[in-house]
């Protein structure tokens, strides 16, 4: 059972509170009417299934109800980092070995980093109520 660091709650919680929600960073075409059937089909139905580094979307369903992303090794089940919606992973298949050598674990004895690079800040701005 996974131990997952929720980047919003800023705490490790048990997997039972979470729910996987498929591949992360899918881009819905901005103007669906302008894409071909094939492109739309790719968006709808085709997903990566890598052995190794994978970016997944999860939701803290029985917690803060926030969606966030996980970088996970599908071979070892190691969770390398968790990061908020709109951020980009700091560990990717391309740089995973380097990042591992640098030691990406957090100092508190845990497994996951929460280091991520904001790409789209509007996703994290609290909307005024």
């Amino acid at each position: 059972m996974f131990h997952i660091f929720c980047p919003y709650c800023q705490e490790y919680r048990e997997e039972e509170e979470f729910h996987p929600s498929g591949q992360a960073h899918l881009v819905r075409p901005a103007d669906p009417a302008s894409v071909s059937d094939e492109e739309w089909g790719d968006y709808l139905f085709f997903r990566d299934n890598p052995r190794g580094i994978h970016h997944e979307m999860w939701v803290h369903r029985l917690g803060c109800r926030k969606f966030f992303n996980i970088t996970r090794d599908t071979a070892t089940y190691e969770i390398l980092e968790t990061y908020r919606m709109g951020e980009q992973p700091s560990i990717t298949a391309a740089n995973a070995e380097v990042r591992r050598e640098q030691g990406v674990q957090t100092a508190d004895g845990g497994w996951q980093t929460v280091g991520a690079q904001p790409e789209n800040s509007r996703l994290n701005e609290e909307t005024p109520s």
Partner: peptide, 18 residues
Amino acid sequence: LEWLELWHQTEWPELQVY
């Protein structure tokens, strides 16, 4: 409910809705 949250949080966070 989760479906609504999914679309709001991941596609249209600019919409002010709860």
